[in-house]
Simulated assay, not measured.
Amino acid sequence: MTSDLPYRLLSWTVRATGLGVLAVAVAGTWQEERPAVASGGVLLGLLYAAAPAAPGPGGAAWLMLVTAGWAVLAWAAPAFVWPAFPLLFAYLHVLPLWAAMFGVSALTSAAVLAAAWHAGELTLPLLVGPWVAASVVTLLALACKALGAELSERETGPDGR
């Protein structure tokens, strides 16, 4: 049987990072005395934490809801722009590769636009930084999938036994 401990650790780490970034955003908006936005962040965190374990139709619906919640909050407060990056892993886990690449590009573009809107201008760091981060996330997720597939093939053999 395949040892999925490294994959589970990566999954928990990504989820904890996403929840941590959300918690920082919630705390920041709470300090700014914006309880409605902070409450929205708490609800998004609960939805994010309820991620399905395996890809499938339920995962795609969950991902659409989380993305919609993120988009509303990202336009409401600048601190909510940054939880987009742990969410990129979800795109790469839940969706087929072609759809995940489209989703990663769309989400990264939205993060750049939201950050620039909040900053009042589009700067080179706001443009380049998120794309570098999205590239690293994508390459890391694809490498993990490839390693998992290789490990599984080694344990079951090339003929599936």
Rank of each mutant, 00 (worst) to 15 (best):
T2F: 06
L142P: 00
L97W: 06
L124W: 15
A149W: 06
P83N: 11
A27M: 06
G120E: 09
G129V: 06
L43Y: 02
G103Y: 05
C144P: 01
W30M: 11
P35S: 06
W70N: 09
L92P: 01
A84D: 08
V128H: 05
L87Y: 01
G45P: 03
R154T: 08
P6V: 11
A143V: 15
G120N: 06
A116D: 06
Y91R: 04
T138A: 03
L124M: 14
V42R: 13
G148F: 05
S3F: 11
G20I: 13
R154A: 11
V128R: 07
L65W: 07
T108G: 10
W12K: 01
E155K: 13
S39E: 10
S105F: 05
V24A: 15
E155Y: 10
M64K: 12
V37Q: 14
F85L: 02
A119K: 07
L19C: 09
L22G: 12
G58V: 05
G157K: 05
P6F: 06
G120S: 10
V81K: 05
A53Y: 00
V104N: 01
S105T: 03
R15M: 13
G45A: 05
L47V: 14
L126C: 01
V72T: 08
A106K: 10
V26R: 03
G148E: 10
L63A: 15
L63C: 14
A110S: 10
L46D: 10
S135K: 08
G129W: 09
L63F: 12
A77P: 05
G120W: 13
V14N: 12
K145G: 13
V81I: 01
R34A: 12
A84I: 09
A149Y: 05
A25R: 03
M1W: 10
R15K: 08
V136R: 08
L147V: 15
V128Y: 07
E155W: 11
V66I: 03
G28N: 02
E121L: 13
A134H: 08
V24N: 11
A49D: 09
M1D: 09
L10V: 05
T17E: 13
G120L: 12
L107T: 09
A53M: 00
L9C: 13
T108N: 06
V21Q: 07
F102K: 06
P86R: 04
V24H: 14
W62F: 00
A23V: 03
W12G: 00
L5K: 13
Y7H: 01
E121P: 02
P57Y: 01
V94W: 12
E32C: 00
A60E: 07
P52V: 02
L87W: 03
A111W: 10
V94H: 13
R15L: 13
A36G: 12
A84K: 08
L10M: 08
G28D: 02
A100Y: 02
S152H: 04
G28L: 05
